[in-house]
Design a protein around this nucleic acid. Structure first.
Lengths: 135, 135
DNA sequence: ATATTAAACGCAACACAATTGCATTTAGTT
DNA sequence: AACTAAATGCAATTGTGTTGCGTTTAATAT
C-alpha cells in the first residue's frame, strides 16, 4: 500500500506534511527525534509537526520512546499496534557516538519476575553502546 | 556513616540543601524527580537543587534515569558506582497510577544478544505497571 | 468542475524544564 | 577570628512541548 492510502486508511487526511513525515519515519529503520525530522523538511511549522506526530501515535502508526538523553523519539510500528496495547516488547539501541536510535525488532527479552504486589503492563529495554556504522 | 561525613567523603561541602536532598533520596528506595524533591523542602532555590543533583551525580552518589514520561529522576546508588562505569543493570519500575519510580535492586535481566556490529555499554530496563501500594 | 465543510495548518502566546553568568554568602580551613 | 574556594540565589536565556484562534485545504457532495 502506498503512503497516501495508508494515511487515509487510518482516518487521516493525506497532507504534504504527513506524507513527508511518514516517508522519513519509514526510512532508516530507526526512531526519529522531532529535531531530526524537522531537518528532513525544507520548511515545516514546528507545531504542525508536533501535531502530526501526535496524530500518527494516536492512530497507532508510530510509537513514542524516550531515549537515553530524555529525548522523545518516534518509530513506525511494524505490526499494527492499537494505541492502548502497544506491545513495545522489542529492544531499542541508542548509539553513544551518533546518538541515533535503532529499533532491534529481532531482539527480544526474557520475561521478568517482579516482586509480589507489582503488576506489569509493559517493558521498555534501552541498550546504549556503539552502533554498526560508528564501529 | 552519617550523611554529613558521606557528603564530605565525596569531596563536597555538607551544606543544608545537600543534607536535606540526600536524606530525601535515601528514604523510600525510589527515584525522585526534581519536583518531588523540591516539594520535600520548605524552601529551596530551584537552581541550587539542580546543581546539587548534578554534583551528586558527578560524585557517583546518585544515578540519573529518565522515566516513562520523559521525566528525569535520581536514585541513590547502592554500590559505589564511578560515574563512568555505572552498572545500571538493575530494573526500574514506573507506576502508571502514582507515577512513582522504584529501583528493583534484586531484579536482574538476562544478557541480550545484539546483531553483529553493535557493541553494548549498558542497559536500562524500565517496566511500567501498577505498584505495590496502588494495587 | 465547483461548492462545501470538517480537518489541518500556521502564527502568537504560553508553560515548564533546565542551564549560564555573576554577585553574594558560607563551610571548612589556617 | 580571618581567609578562600565552593556553594548559593537571582536574573536572564534556551529548548521542548502545548493551547487558542483565524485561515487554508483535502476530501466529499453537488
Amino acid at each position: 500500500m502506498n503512503t497516501t492510502d495508508y494515511i487515509r486508511e487510518k482516518g487521516l487526511k493525506a497532507t504534504p506534511v504527513r506524507l513527508k513525515a511518514l516517508e522519513l519515519l519509514q526510512s532508516g529503520a530507526r526512531a526519529w527525534s522531532h529535531t531530526e525530522l524537522e531537518a528532513g523538511f525544507s520548511k515545516v511549522d514546528r507545531i504542525t509537526l508536533y501535531r502530526v506526530l501526535k496524530d500518527f501515535e494516536e492512530a497507532g502508526m508510530v510509537h513514542k520512546i524516550i531515549d537515553m538523553d530524555g529525548v522523545t523519539r518516534f518509530a513506525v510500528c511494524k505490526h499494527s499496534c492499537p494505541h492502548s496495547t502497544h506491545s513495545e516488547d522489542h529492544v531499542h539501541f541508542n548509539c553513544r557516538k551518533c546518538h541515533k536510535m535503532f529499533c532491534m525488532d529481532n531482539v527480544h527479552i526474557a520475561p521478568i519476575q517482579l516482586p509480589a504486589g507489582f503488576t506489569q503492563i509493559g517493558v521498555n529495554t534501552l541498550i546504549h553502546g556503539i552502533c554498526d556504522a560508528c564501529n
